[in-house]
Design a protein around this nucleic acid. Structure first.
Lengths: 195, 195
DNA sequence: TCCGCATTCAATCATCTGATTGATGGAGAG
DNA sequence: CTCTCCATCAATCAGATGATTGAATGCGGA
């Protein structure tokens, strides 16, 4: 259209490029090590240019949050029986942790930071509630289908699953071998009767 | 006038005071917001004095790590049957999270940082292994006692418990109400037949 | 009393870091 | 061709931050 060529055009690409670079920077160095200069450098751009797109560092961080959260929401999409969708969820997280380990590093940083950032806490709280609610429903449905044992409380188990996945994926202990991860996941699946 | 009299007990007192202040600072602001000046201020001491006891910021952080880890190890001490000791462990964590919430904030920071700090990762990895190992043994013993169901894998369930507790306590979502915490803990206790 | 040692402080340094300013090149409109 | 923005850059600022220096202050021993 006539005027704004930046709404969806190439200039928007630069914006995303910068947000992406910041995302990677946080994954590698945490918020503690996030430097605007490094972000600009990674894109091969002047610091002033970064501030042209993001007036302040906080604005840049907001963009990173948006990116991370959107990446994450893609893990609950699946079809089939409730049990199948639960299996798919676990499997999807396994795959995601292999293909995009940075995402989990960033999510961990975001969760910790949410303790000191009200607006961030709100964003995360919402995603969290949706996640847990979806799991609760899936567990309940899977009980109706006869897959998940009846003596399990959907609400409580949803809490356990969410907490376990957070603990396993967002707080890595031995940087390299995800041995404990698989043990925990398998045990969860066993309790749910998914194997 | 003469210099104000210092309240020196043991020569280590000032050192601990500073480490404690840094500990509190990290609990409030995270590593991201740790400033040596603030730490010195909190103790009412000159920055140079801080550097007299801790040549570098890293040295100060090491001391904080030591303090946090030692505080944490006190949660596994208990006597009685394996089931009782498991119950006591959960109960002890509930109490600790009420009485020393800072400890969990700091532990969360440490866990995240361990991804970028090899020596820290080693310290935490050791504590983690000990924790998980103890739980595994307790679960196995509780199975012999007939409390915990036989179909549970002690190794896997220990992983689940550790991960769940980390997720629940170290990655707070809704800053205030620990509603989800209690749900998750109860469900874990139910699965273990502890209630 | 004098000396040495342990502590502490005021002042300062060197750098880092987020942010701003003014100028420049280029593409499209008239 | 010229005028006008958009995007970008080099240079710079102001404040923060980890660390150092050299000088006090007080205490115990010789």
């Amino acid at each position: 259209m006539a005027k704004a060529k930046r709404e969806t055009g190439p200039p928007e690409a630069r914006r995303e490029e910068l947000a992406l670079a910041a995302y990677g920077e946080i994954a590698r160095n945490g918020f503690e090590g996030l430097r605007t200069r490094e972000v600009a450098n990674a894109v091969g751009v002047n610091i002033a240019t970064l501030h042209y797109y993001f007036p302040s560092k906080e604005d840049l961080i907001r963009a990173v949050i948006g990116h991370a959260m959107s990446r994450f929401q893609s893990t609950l999409a699946a079809t089939g029986s409730a049990a199948d969708r639960l299996r798919a969820h676990f499997q999807g997280l396994r795959r995601l942790s292999r293909q995009e380990p940075e995402l989990f590093a960033v999510m961990g940083e975001l969760m910790l930071r949410s303790a000191r950032d009200r607006s961030l806490a709100q964003v995360i709280g919402k995603t969290d509630a949706y996640w847990q609610g979806t799991l609760r429903t899936l567990i309940r449905d899977a009980q109706s289908e006869g897959t998940v044992p009846r003596n399990i409380d959907p609400e409580g188990m949803a809490s356990v699953i969410v907490a376990t996945l957070k603990g396993v994926y967002l707080l890595p202990v031995g940087a390299g071998p995800p041995a404990g991860v698989e043990k925990a996941l398998r045990q969860l699946e066993d309790v749910l009767g998914l194997r």
